[in-house]
Simulated scan of single mutants.
Amino acid sequence: MSNDQAIKYHLTLDSSITKSATRDHPQPAASLPEPKKTNISPKGSAGNENASIYFIGTATTILEWEGIRILTDPNFLHAGDHVHLGPGVTATRQTNPAIDLHELPRIDAVLLSHYHADHFDQEVEASLRRDLPIISTPHAKECLVVKKGDDRFTDVYDLDFFQNMMLDIKTLAAASDSGKSPAIKVTGMPGKHVPDGLLSRANEILGAVPPTNGWMVELGYKSSASTSSDSSFKSGYRIYISGDTLFVDELKEIPERYAGKNIDLMLVHLGGTTIPGPSMPLLMVTMDAEQGIKLMQLINPDVTIPIHYDDYDAFLSPLEDFKKAVSSAGWDDRVVYLDRADMYKFAVQG
């Protein structure tokens, strides 16, 4: 079994180009705000951390490495704001993001797990500059490009399960004597928002809950002389992002495909999101604490960071439940908990 399908797209990100993430604020912030707390691996630090993840809230994070910033699932609504999650289904935000949308520093690309308003809210959709690269699902590409007409996004890349693309990084230090250039390999991972069976078939007809991806994000280096092929790419750090999925059989293919390849970090979407809402919790569409523990057992990452756990009233599985389950499993030394505006720093191996 091959590790993944052939590269479908190729994108070059240039850290020397300064552009705002939004259309109405042409001058981006110079950098992220100082984190409230900086975390490192529970195993300790060798003092060589060269990459970071900054937690903004919900599933919104900023991955920073080699001068490049990738924004995941942008949601910048505030407490009291509402999102539409399907026919007759709304959710109310309970928290504020760590920073506001217009306070973002330069963003080079967006990694969007699926086209759902708690991951790509109405203000984000209206405000993001149209040429900002977005990597997402085929469904999201149709919504952001085909259905938006003249106001469409112009640089959207769609990846299905196990399809991948390479993001080359152009930096001032890229052409070094080492002959290596930084690059990021993004691969779509399986995910299901709706459980199999009658409900899934009904959702396919109604289109109420959108299809979703997880991601494998590999930070590493390739030969400076290579072309768009990833044949020379060597991963120095793997991050698995679960996306809004339940614990479904399709996830079992991930450790099979990455057998013998270490997963350094997992960002797991929790919350036990229920629809139509907290007053009538008929269907769970994201993992709760129990399923999160099962995913840790399946993927076996070195470190797990839970996200997407308390920002909306549709989340009925509190983070405290996951903490108790982690302690019961004896895994306290394998989990890092981030509050909004906290940062996790790690080392990408060269």
Rank of each mutant, 00 (worst) to 15 (best):
residue 246 L to W: 03
residue 76 F to H: 03
residue 235 S to T: 13
residue 147 K to W: 15
residue 174 A to R: 05
residue 302 D to E: 09
residue 313 D to M: 09
residue 286 T to G: 00
residue 313 D to A: 09
residue 333 D to F: 04
residue 126 A to H: 01
residue 12 T to C: 00
residue 242 S to F: 08
residue 37 K to W: 04
residue 80 G to M: 13
residue 34 E to C: 04
residue 32 L to S: 15
residue 12 T to R: 01
residue 293 I to P: 07
residue 181 S to Q: 07
residue 255 P to I: 02
residue 335 V to Q: 07
residue 160 D to T: 09
residue 141 K to E: 13
residue 227 T to H: 13
residue 107 I to A: 10
residue 217 V to Q: 03
residue 166 M to Y: 03
residue 313 D to E: 07
residue 262 N to I: 07
residue 327 S to F: 00
residue 307 I to F: 03
residue 259 A to K: 05
residue 94 Q to D: 08
residue 15 S to Q: 07
residue 191 G to H: 08
residue 258 Y to D: 05
residue 150 D to W: 11
residue 303 V to S: 04
residue 184 I to L: 00
residue 203 N to Q: 09
residue 280 M to I: 07
residue 104 L to T: 14
residue 14 D to K: 00
residue 9 Y to I: 02
residue 74 P to I: 03
residue 64 E to I: 02
residue 243 G to H: 00
residue 177 D to Q: 05
residue 136 S to M: 00
residue 27 Q to C: 07
residue 112 L to K: 08
residue 222 K to W: 03
residue 133 P to A: 14
residue 115 Y to P: 01
residue 318 P to W: 14
residue 206 L to T: 10
residue 289 A to Y: 01
residue 169 I to K: 01
residue 48 N to D: 01
residue 267 L to Y: 05
residue 232 S to W: 10
residue 177 D to W: 13
residue 256 E to T: 15
residue 262 N to W: 04
residue 326 V to W: 06
residue 10 H to Q: 11
residue 13 L to N: 10
residue 190 P to K: 00
residue 167 L to M: 13
residue 89 V to P: 10
residue 27 Q to Y: 12
residue 203 N to E: 07
residue 143 C to W: 10
residue 149 G to V: 05
residue 43 K to V: 13
residue 276 P to Q: 01
residue 252 K to N: 06
residue 215 W to I: 01
residue 182 P to K: 14
residue 89 V to N: 07
residue 101 L to D: 01
residue 24 D to M: 11
residue 78 H to V: 00
residue 264 D to A: 03
residue 10 H to V: 05
residue 137 T to Y: 00
residue 297 Q to W: 07
residue 236 G to V: 02
residue 102 H to G: 15
residue 208 A to V: 08
residue 41 S to M: 07
residue 5 Q to N: 11
residue 57 G to Y: 04
residue 155 D to R: 15
residue 320 E to A: 15
residue 187 T to S: 14
residue 158 D to N: 11
residue 251 L to P: 12
residue 111 L to M: 04
residue 170 K to A: 12
residue 4 D to G: 13
residue 112 L to R: 06
residue 92 T to L: 02
residue 323 K to Y: 05
residue 264 D to N: 14
residue 261 K to R: 02
residue 223 S to G: 11
residue 139 H to G: 06
residue 267 L to C: 03
residue 22 T to F: 02
residue 298 L to K: 00
residue 50 N to Q: 14
residue 306 P to S: 09
residue 126 A to N: 11
residue 283 L to M: 13
residue 257 R to T: 01
residue 315 F to D: 13
residue 297 Q to N: 12
residue 234 K to M: 06
residue 275 I to W: 13
residue 345 K to I: 09
residue 168 D to I: 04
residue 277 G to S: 04
residue 21 A to E: 06
residue 92 T to R: 03
residue 302 D to V: 08
residue 212 T to C: 14
residue 248 V to E: 01
residue 70 I to R: 08
residue 65 W to Q: 06
residue 282 L to Q: 08
residue 331 W to E: 02
